[in-house]
Design a protein around this nucleic acid. Sequence first.
DNA 1: TCTAGCACTCACCGACCCAGAGTGCCAGTC
DNA 2: GACTGGCACTCTGGGTCGGTGAGTGCTAGA
Lengths: 335, 335
Amino acid sequence: MLDDRKLAVLRAIVTDYVCSREPVGSRAIVEKHHLDVSPATVRNDMALLEDEGYITHPHTSAGRVPTDKGYRMFVDRLSTIKPLSSAEKRAISAFLTGAVDLDDVISRTVRLLAQVTSQVAIMRYPSTRQATIKRVDLIRLHDDRGLLVLINSLGKVSQRHIDLAGVDDDGLLMLRDRFNETLNGASPAQATDRLERLPNEVSPLFRGQATSIAALLMAMVAFAGSDKVAVAGLNNLVQFAQGYDAAIKPVLDTIEEQVVLLRLLGEVTPDVSVRIGQENQHSNLNQASVVATAYAVDDHWSGLGVVGPTRMDYPSTIASVQAVARYVSHILAEG
Amino acid sequence: MLDDRKLAVLRAIVTDYVCSREPVGSRAIVEKHHLDVSPATVRNDMALLEDEGYITHPHTSAGRVPTDKGYRMFVDRLSTIKPLSSAEKRAISAFLTGAVDLDDVISRTVRLLAQVTSQVAIMRYPSTRQATIKRVDLIRLHDDRGLLVLINSLGKVSQRHIDLAGVDDDGLLMLRDRFNETLNGASPAQATDRLERLPNEVSPLFRGQATSIAALLMAMVAFAGSDKVAVAGLNNLVQFAQGYDAAIKPVLDTIEEQVVLLRLLGEVTPDVSVRIGQENQHSNLNQASVVATAYAVDDHWSGLGVVGPTRMDYPSTIASVQAVARYVSHILAEG
DNA sequence: TCTAGCACTCACCGACCCAGAGTGCCAGTC
DNA sequence: GACTGGCACTCTGGGTCGGTGAGTGCTAGA
């Protein structure tokens, strides 16, 4: 039904439209893409492509524009992923290896991705579900104000303010050591289990404090830490709008809310996934495309990707997202 | 030179323009603001206000629009800060008291401020220059990969990845205890001083590691932690543009860069400062106004505020910024 | 000092036309 | 049967042209 030439025409329409942002006509196609046929033939092909729903035209006398289905076909069958230049690879690698801790890796990654794709980059923090507990610390900051700190095997540090009224310094040390003994090396499930029993095993003098600390720790352990999304490259949204700023509002709303992004980045796999326009469940993103993939943190995966206009350069974007995900997995693996 | 009526005219122009977003004419002023004079009289006043540079008009037959100088006069002499309603106060207080740690306080504050002002809110992280060191921790995550953690009296936790090759568990404990003894309670200046001497005082076996740890800690201490800005409410930028999206590009660029925001928020005092349009040194913000103030963290100050169009509701915005700064200072003081 | 009146200016809006780009279709050719 | 050249058609975008209305500046008079 769709012979090679028709597919070539579709490919030409997508690539030309992506770079010119203007509906593309039959003559432009034969001229730029060296199809050895006449514009009339291309027109016939285009009429058929339109019947099939791959392209459309904004008005009678305009050229053709790809539909979501057209982009989908392009991504699935017509494009080849552009490998990154070695200069780009070096830049990525150099930029990421300078990171000093987990937060810094993430912040650098997302900025990098925004820059290389010229789009809005998003990255979910790694989940700590697989991580084991490495250290619990209990610190008096100021009179009765204390800080409870939890460090896990991923190097993620979380903390909570805590009230230390009625606990002297010896008690503090005792509680700290007790919690450390109990939790060292524990998985989240084990930790919850042990934390439930622990308060009953300490001296009644400190039972109240131990209970509240245990409750806080359970909350910290349960909170996987991955419900946070780093975002960069929002200034690239302006090119998205292209003089029509109603389009950027829903995207900005979505980014501000985070919860949609979390779900989006929670569904990724190590393959690069591309969601085009209406394929996005969330209606705010119906004018946008999301290219995402997973990066590895120890034995676990988390998501990263970009959000841009459906009219985006898919081959380059896919290549960049993939490359950045690989590099960041690598960096996280070797520390 | 500017009698009471002329000032009233200016006030009327500013308030009407802020809410209608359209140039305001002489008749509208006399009707809405009950000045007991004729439109012609107001026109004479407007001509004078224009000579003095307080207002301008986009074209001959249009109404008047305030200039930056006009807004400045309005803010300095013509407006009274609207107190917040008690419902607003309760909402602010309730939202902030739920925070679990320092990061959470900041993230909640900035989201809150964006919401109550319907503008882009920015907040600089507290400086840790005044904080003393509470704890140093050294943890083995995985083979030779380690984590160095520093906790200060503000409850701020910073961490760095570190290579632990050649250090056994006993050595790790020894180093940790040694660093803790040396640094406990130290101010940044003291810490740097002591860290320079420490490597020479440990066993030669661990001198190499001690040196690199000391170097890392010095960097962490020197890094005041305040060179980070939290941002929220970017979706409010759309109303900023108001159909003219070239205006939001420079603002987005500035926010993405952070460095300008840092300087901006580094200059604030406990009084609310208002920078209107051209008064902002940075040319990207020449179309914007920045309302900012300082919030207190222990004995130190850091900045917070909003960025919006010069055409903003200054009295409400100033009141909100001030109120939020007070509440967050309060929350941070009592923990 | 204020006001009423009047002429003037200019953006905005709709109507109109034109040029140009692009299409769809059809008859003819290979 | 597939392709092509030609042609009529459609529609956008830009430009021109008045009319309208809001708003002004100025002047003479209260």
